[in-house]
């Protein structure tokens, strides 16, 4: 556990030294605020108006955008997790250390996840405070949505980190990660046109379903927690196996 913590600390501190994190956070906060205050959510069968157009103190639009925005943001933050180590040759050095691969994978996952949680908090809370100053905001829904966003972030980080482990270059890791997570998001929109036997399965397989249909509305659902926990276990175990396989190459 102490080795996991050491790796976690190292990775997190390294993130703070990288300009990528700051640029990403800045862009994310700006884009999300712009969409929330001015654009609304025009996608899908039930478009939502922007804050000013709707005139209601609610963060629904902000939460509805989150799965899509995180589908791009998380790969941007995790793209270097393994692929950079690989391209710079430090991966071999890391793997020769007396440390278990699963500890490295977990440490890297925790560091990325904490960074994503920090970013989500920084993008949601200031907006929530603004809105609560303008109207009667339901804070319980905000806290619940924030918790759900952390779980969504965990699932996304596990998937994006796996993609990073499979890629040899950072850019490729980002593109593949964004594509995989983007496809998971798009699936929810395709439910109507999919064969009925697939619709229910696909809807349940979508991470955004488990966020938007419950936590984003202020509902805690044990099934969603199980879904994200299993997704993380799936992603991290495969991640460890992929790195292990490379060690023996």
């Amino acid at each position: 556990m102490s080795r996991t913590l050491a790796i976690f600390k190292r990775e997190l501190l390294a993130s703070f030294e990288s300009p990528v994190a700051y640029v990403t956070i800045g862009l994310f906060v700006l884009v999300q605020a712009g969409l929330f205050f001015y654009m609304g959510y025009p996608i899908g069968p039930a478009p939502l108006p922007s804050l000013w157009a709707g005139g209601q103190a609610s963060l629904t639009v902000l939460f509805t955008w989150l799965p899509l925005l995180l589908a791009f943001l998380v790969p941007a933050l995790t793209m270097g997790t393994w692929s950079e180590e690989r391209s710079t040759g430090t991966e071999e050095l890391l793997l020769t250390h007396p440390v278990l691969i699963r500890e490295v994978v977990l440490g890297k996952f925790l560091a990325s996840w904490v960074l994503v949680c920090l970013l989500v908090t920084l993008s949601i809370l200031p907006v929530a405070w603004t809105v609560s100053g303008l109207g009667d905001l339901d804070w319980a829904t905000v806290w619940c949505g924030l918790g759900g966003a952390f779980l969504l972030g965990a699932g996304y980080v596990a998937v994006a980190q796996l993609v990073s482990a499979l890629s040899s270059h950072q850019l490729l890791a980002f593109l593949l990660g964004a594509m995989v997570l983007g496809m998971l998001w798009v699936l929810r929109l395709l439910v109507e046109v999919l064969p009925v036997s697939l619709a229910s399965l696909v809807d349940y397989a979508c991470p955004s379903t488990h966020f938007l249909d419950s936590a984003a509305r202020g509902v805690l659902d044990l099934r969603d927690a199980v879904y994200f926990a299993l997704l993380v276990v799936f992603g991290l175990t495969l991640n460890a196996l992929v790195v292990e396989a490379r060690r023996w190459r």
Binding site: D138, C144, R217, G218, V219, R223, V226, L238
Partner: peptide
């Protein structure tokens, strides 16, 4: 195997863990 575990685990959760709590003020989803 992991994929199958993911599917089975979720299916079990869906059938046997219908535990949810609506924390929102409007209480529309419980």
């Amino acid at each position: 195997l992991l994929g199958a575990l993911l599917a089975v685990g979720n299916d079990l959760a869906r059938q046997h863990m219908p535990r949810r709590k609506d924390l929102s003020e409007d209480q529309l989803y419980a």
